[in-house]
């Protein structure tokens, strides 16, 4: 039995999922609807479907990841695919093989779907040009992380019923965040009002042209927000003088109850993980009843099942 048979048919004429950019409103909503149904599958005792039976999915991660990689692995297995995980430490990339050589080699093994994470923006797209199978971007540099934005949207929609008109504040390291970019694109497409809040050293140049309001004060930026989305702050941002210290960052940009009180009383607290408690988020806020951080992880599996489903319709020899 397949989920697709139950789901509303929607058009998804893409071979790859390389980013939110290029997806229409209907395609995004269609993926979210499909994911909503898939989320039911994960809560059943019998989680195994046969949509991808006989298919091979390869997780190719050039950057380490726990949750995204295992989420894709589970999603693939629940749909009946054979899943193989490759990381750079075990692959010949560490022996100096170029990305394109790796792509050509993997392609010769005839996978059906490649899930790729890479530290360089555009690397997943480059790889997609060199292989015959479907490619899913699981994060490329500071560019995009489309399944994260989809799972965030699904989580929001489940709680608020809609996304249109919501005020969403994305807080933290906007400059380096692929999660922020994909979320800005998706939330704007679905009609949310997006704000970004960060010290000016962590704001990407020209970001307002993407249709966001820019704040450098949490107190102002969180005013009346429906959704508070925190981003992880990497430790190297301190050593490269983008922020002076962890202590100062937490004081001005860490989410605590006092700053959170500016947002709407029923505001959702989100974080793509992994969290740095006490750096960008106060521990008690992370565990607050308004926090949906664990639900985001659950929706991650559902969204990835939906994406695999949607792409599977166009797999060759189908």
């Amino acid at each position: 039995m397949s989920i697709a048979a139950e789901a509303t048919e929607f058009s998804f004429p893409h071979r790859h999922l390389l980013g939110i950019e290029g997806l229409s409103r209907d395609e995004i909503v269609g993926l979210l609807d499909l994911a909503e149904q898939a989320s039911g599958v994960s809560r059943q005792v019998a989680k195994k479907r046969d949509d991808l039976r006989g298919r091979t999915l390869i997780n190719l991660f050039f950057e380490s990841s726990t949750r995204t990689q295992s989420s894709f692995e589970l999603a693939g297995k629940r749909l009946g695919a054979d899943v193989m995980n490759m990381s750079t430490r075990t692959s010949s990339m560490s022996k100096g093989e170029t990305l394109i050589d790796t792509a050509v080699t993997l392609n010769a093994m005839r996978p059906d779907i490649l899930v790729v994470r890479h530290h360089a923006a555009g690397a997943v797209e480059l790889l997609a040009q060199k292989v015959d199978c479907s490619v899913i971007n699981a994060g490329d540099g500071s560019h995009e992380h489309p399944t994260q934005a989809l799972l965030d949207a699904l989580t929001i929609r489940r709680h608020k019923g809609h996304i249109d008109g919501l005020i969403v504040a994305i807080c933290g390291d906007i400059l380096h965040s692929r999660v922020a970019r994909s979320n800005i694109l998706l939330l704007n497409t679905l009609g949310a009002r997006v704000r970004v809040i960060a010290p000016s050293t962590l704001i990407a140049s020209g970001i307002s042209r993407l249709g966001v309001e820019v704040y450098s004060s949490m107190w102002e930026g969180l005013e009346g927000a429906d959704i508070v989305m925190m981003l992880r702050l990497q430790r190297e941002r301190m050593t490269s003088n983008l922020v002076p210290s962890q202590r100062e960052y937490f004081h001005f940009f860490g989410l605590d109850h006092e700053k959170l009180s500016r947002a709407k009383p029923d505001a959702l607290i989100m974080h793509p993980g992994p969290m740095n408690r006490g750096v960008e988020i106060d521990s008690s806020v992370a565990d607050d009843q308004r926090s949906v951080i664990r639900e985001q992880v659950e929706m991650g599996v559902a969204v990835r099942m939906a994406v695999l489903q949607a792409l599977a319709r166009h797999l060759p020899n189908h």
Partner: peptide
């Protein structure tokens, strides 16, 4: 530097 670089996620 600017909007195009920001969209592409490039420094």
């Amino acid at each position: 530097e600017g909007e195009v670089a920001t969209r592409l996620g490039l420094p």
